[in-house]
Simulated assay, not measured.
Amino acid sequence: MFDGTLTATRDEGAELARLRGLYDGLLEQPPAGISTGAQTDLAAMARIFDLEADRPPAEVWRDLRAVLMRQADPDISDEEAPASRPLTLMVVEDDAEMAADLTELLTTAGHGVVGPFSDAAAAMTAAGLHAIDLALLDINLAGDQQDSSEGGGVGLARTLKQSWGVPAIFLSGDVAAAARHARLATALVLKPYSGRDVLNGIARAVASGAVAR
């Protein structure tokens, strides 16, 4: 039975540690400098969490760091996730246990689920057969050769958006990879995540207007 917590099988906390090592210097006095590329990635990461990116990098990182730290620790807050109207959601996740838990979470919340699928090819076939409101995609699909240069989830998000107008949420511990492809996703849910994090991401996508009403 789904218990409200969805945990990753690999060490996704390493990505958060890497980001803190790269950007925490911005919060020092005086602040450390970062490269132009790191500033670009920082702004892209902020936007996929609906944070204002057109500010000094230290302000952007302060707020983004708080979001990432909060999501990384599901015990920080027990606030209830906002409800969303029933949607038809596609789930693409190559970890079978996580996919099953995610499907149970979504159906319990009143949504319809297409999938889950473990590879991009099957998901693209299904997208041509179903009216989908929003796709929840693992950005890196193990063993998926559909687009090995960027991960099957990224190529799938592009196809869903261009061919069927379906918006996507990335499910990933690789925040930097999600930032590089931020234009393809309406939100990011960072692994390991709780059920509340997923429902919050869906609510953000609806509130942003990305999901057709």
Rank of each mutant, 00 (worst) to 15 (best):
E52W: 01
A72L: 01
A83Q: 15
A168D: 06
L184W: 02
N140W: 05
A210E: 13
A81K: 08
H181V: 02
A99C: 09
A99Y: 03
S77Q: 03
P31E: 11
I169D: 05
L199M: 13
A99R: 01
G151A: 03
P82N: 06
I139T: 10
P56H: 11
D147S: 12
R20Q: 15
G173D: 10
L134K: 00
A123C: 06
E12I: 01
M45P: 03
G4M: 05
A207G: 05
Q146S: 15
V154P: 07
S149H: 08
L184S: 10
A179H: 03
A212T: 12
L64Y: 01
A58L: 06
R55Q: 15
T107A: 11
R196T: 15
L136D: 04
R10L: 10
A131T: 12
G110N: 09
A207L: 08
W61H: 09
A53R: 07
T36K: 10
P86A: 03
T88W: 04
M98G: 15
H111S: 09
R62P: 00
E104G: 07
A179M: 12
A46C: 01
Y23Q: 10
A120Q: 08
D73F: 00
G143Y: 06
V92N: 05
G152F: 01
L136I: 07
L64H: 06
E28V: 03
R62I: 02
L6E: 04
I132T: 04
M98Y: 00
R196L: 09
Q145K: 05
T36G: 08
A43S: 14
I76A: 14
L26V: 06
E97H: 03
V67H: 02
D63R: 05
G165H: 00
P192A: 15
G151V: 06
A96S: 13
E93M: 10
L102D: 08
A58N: 13
L106A: 06
K161C: 09
R18S: 10
T40D: 14
